[in-house]
Write a protein that binds this DNA or RNA. Structure first.
Lengths: 255, 255
DNA sequence: GATCCTTTCAGGACAGTGTATGGAAAGCCC
DNA sequence: GGGCTTTCCATACACTGTCCTGAAAGGATC
């Protein structure tokens, strides 16, 4: 039950113990250094030796501030989510739909700043600011006529939609950054090789139709942020229909 | 451009070269062994040495069939997606909404059988059967009155919704299996420690309200499969409203 | 001010990992 | 039966996270 110790680090008070040799480094400094590394290199290339070197400190010194590498990542995630805790709060008089859409967008932007969060293999940790985000996501769906379980499901699904979309689009940039190959260059060469040599129009008729119809015209359809707003709007329309049966959603109607 | 070599392994013909010492092992066998390991232990604990040992073969012998560990994983993913290629095809007369929902469910079930797919850090590889799934996902949205880009966006978002939900729910079971701690046991002890000691009802009012309203009554709200069907239905309702403006979606209306 | 005590520091070691190297082995073709 | 071509696999290297250990450093106490 390693999570239990994580919980103490995440939630426990930092009781400053005055006796003994003082630590050369704060836990905040370690976490910040880890985030800087992850922002620049990705989670995969984040090593304890690197973080220690960045801080000018021996490797094992990190383990007085952090229980393990996984524990460090958990703390980093909490710190990242802390960036948006205040922004997420629902504003006075803000319609539930606007609040939900704004929160989705905020989470999307957070993933944009810290793509390594999406590489975290395990479930999101029970960290204070992660829970704060979850709580904020539940808020808009509370008093719109859904059952309690329905509200919970709606919020979870919205969060998963944003996360899934972010993964599909951002991990691409992440990989591009790691390999050092530019986005346009990567796609152009890959496409030249791939479409000309391997793609079979009869095998993939839908993609072929979309291709000739210009459906992929944006070149990097995922990189555009329109897809998030559209998907969230469509989903919230469906929720709205369930929330107030008989009324149609307030969607703008644009495709 | 490591992907380029992956492409050859994925799409190139397996030209059987008759000269030279014959390989003791097929590429299919290697990929199958890797999948068995990953199904049982997860992607994180999949090592080349283990796969080689399972096959009774030297470690480096794998590298004649597979370019690298990442290449092996890519082939494994393609093989996993091949399981559903036939199932995904749209059936005669099947309404687009039913087809999309069925495909979403099929992908969800695939993630259930092979949760390690969700641990793949990079973008989904351009593999034949991965493309087949993407193509199938595009199909239902083609002739329902959306713009080409709108159809593409709708299909991508649906796929991301399923993937995101699967990650949020399945990675949990994955971690539970790895740590060997049972699902119920894990949650009960964690919850006992967490809720009693750390959770602050004033800090997380929405979760608190949902808790007392029974919104989390299912105990493992994510493990239930209802959340997928509900989320997909809501999203497709929103798409339907955009596809045929003026008509309301065919949602069942249940919360 | 010296001593004890508690805590952190950091070097070395260990069990892993993916994979480059290079000589030995094994089967087809002439 | 060579010659050629391909595969096999032991070894080695760089790298990882983390345990162990004794030394170092500062506060508390006499």
């Amino acid at each position: 039950m390693a999570d239990q110790h994580h919980l103490e680090l995440l939630w426990g008070d930092d009781v400053p113990r005055g006796r003994g040799r003082p630590a050369r480094t704060t836990r905040d400094e370690v976490v910040a250094a880890g985030m800087a590394r992850a922002d620049a290199e990705g989670l995969h290339d984040l090593s304890m030796r690197q973080v220690a070197a960045d801080l000018g400190v021996g490797v094992m010194s990190l383990y007085t501030q952090v229980e393990s590498r996984d524990g460090l990542v958990v703390l980093m995630i909490d710190r990242a989510f802390a960036e948006v805790t205040d922004t997420l709060a629902r504003r006075d008089g803000e319609p539930w739909r606007d609040a939900a859409a704004r929160q989705a967008r905020t989470l999307w932007d957070l993933y944009g700043r810290h793509p390594w969060i999406l590489d975290h293999g395990h479930r999101m940790p029970m960290a204070p600011h992660v829970l704060a985000l979850e709580d904020a996501f539940y808020t808009p769906f509370l008093d719109i006529g859904l059952s309690p379980a329905g509200s919970a499901n709606a919020a979870i699904a919205l969060r998963s939609l944003v996360t899934g979309l972010a993964r599909d689009s951002r991990s691409e940039q992440d990989q591009v950054r790691r390999t050092g190959v530019g986005y346009a260059e990567y796609w152009s060469t890959l496409n030249a090789v791939f479409w000309d040599r391997y793609f079979d129009e009869e095998r993939y008729p839908a993609m072929t139709r979309l291709w000739y119809a210009g459906g992929f015209a944006a070149e990097d359809i995922l990189a555009g942020e329109g897809i998030l707003e559209r998907a969230v709007a469509a989903y919230l329309d469906g929720i709205a229909a369930r929330a107030h049966p008989g009324r149609t959603g307030q969607g703008t109607g644009e495709a």
